[in-house]
Amino acid sequence: MTLKTTLAAAAAGALALTAGLAALPAAAHQHGHHARSAPTIVDVAASTGIHTTLVAAVKAAGLVDTLSGPGPFTVFAPTDTAFAKLPDGTVATLVKPANKPALTKILTYHAVAGKVTRADLVALIGQHRGAATITTIAGEKLTARLSGDKIVITDEQGRATAVTKADVNTSNGVIHVTDGVFLPA
């Protein structure tokens, strides 16, 4: 349970970082303007001010180069507030070098290969009669459903997390900001 909690916290942190970056595209654009047409997922997350935990987790897991690479990736990015909902000490434990494999699994549980927009998710949910299964880079499953006009993602432990801001476009994919951290089974 501690390992799962730790992994979930790490993944949430990574997602939060991505979401934070999505929230501040103008600031991120200023930093990466000359290098590329749009900031990467990591650039955006680092610029938001609400994804500090996620960015720290991405760095601790050694995933900065991957999430700055060509992708494309879809990242469900938990905010710092989402990480703060985890049990005390979870994040601190996950970012320790000895827990890098668990942290990496949690963070990659928040990422999907390819660019999956809100419209794509809504279409998949409709095609699958209200519940679409998504396979993450970690090889684990997430389930997407609609609750009114909100997309709700349920992890393998049955924890439901809402997408609070969708379609934050980056040069290497898209970020969907979430209010919770996913934990693999």
Rank of each mutant, 00 (worst) to 15 (best):
T5C: 03
T5Q: 13
T6K: 07
T6W: 14
T6E: 09
L7W: 12
L7C: 14
A9D: 05
G13E: 04
A14W: 08
A14Y: 12
L15K: 03
A16W: 05
L17F: 06
T18L: 09
L21I: 14
A22K: 09
A26K: 11
A27L: 13
A27E: 09
A28M: 01
H29C: 03
H33N: 03
A35V: 00
S37T: 15
S37F: 14
I41G: 02
V42A: 01
A45Y: 13
T53W: 04
L54D: 11
V55E: 10
A56K: 09
V58P: 02
A60G: 14
L63A: 09
V64T: 14
L67V: 05
S68T: 12
S68M: 03
P70F: 09
P70I: 10
G71F: 03
P72D: 07
P78V: 00
D80C: 10
T81L: 06
T81Y: 09
A82H: 06
A82G: 02
F83Q: 07
K85W: 00
L86K: 13
T90H: 13
V91W: 04
A92Q: 15
T93P: 03
T93G: 14
L94G: 15
V95M: 03
P97V: 02
P101K: 02
P101L: 05
A102E: 14
A102G: 12
L107Y: 08
H110P: 01
V112Q: 02
V112Y: 11
A113P: 01
K115V: 12
V116K: 01
D120A: 02
L124I: 00
H128W: 06
R129M: 00
R129L: 10
R129S: 13
G130A: 04
T133P: 04
T133Y: 03
T136V: 06
I137E: 03
A138E: 11
G139R: 04
G139S: 06
G139V: 07
A144V: 07
R145A: 02
S147K: 15
S147Q: 13
G148S: 05
K150G: 00
I151V: 13
D155F: 05
D155R: 06
Q157A: 14
R159Y: 09
T161Q: 11
T161F: 03
A162R: 15
T164F: 12
A166G: 06
V168D: 05
T170D: 04
T170E: 07
H176N: 08
T178N: 08
T178L: 10
D179I: 06
G180Q: 07
L183N: 10
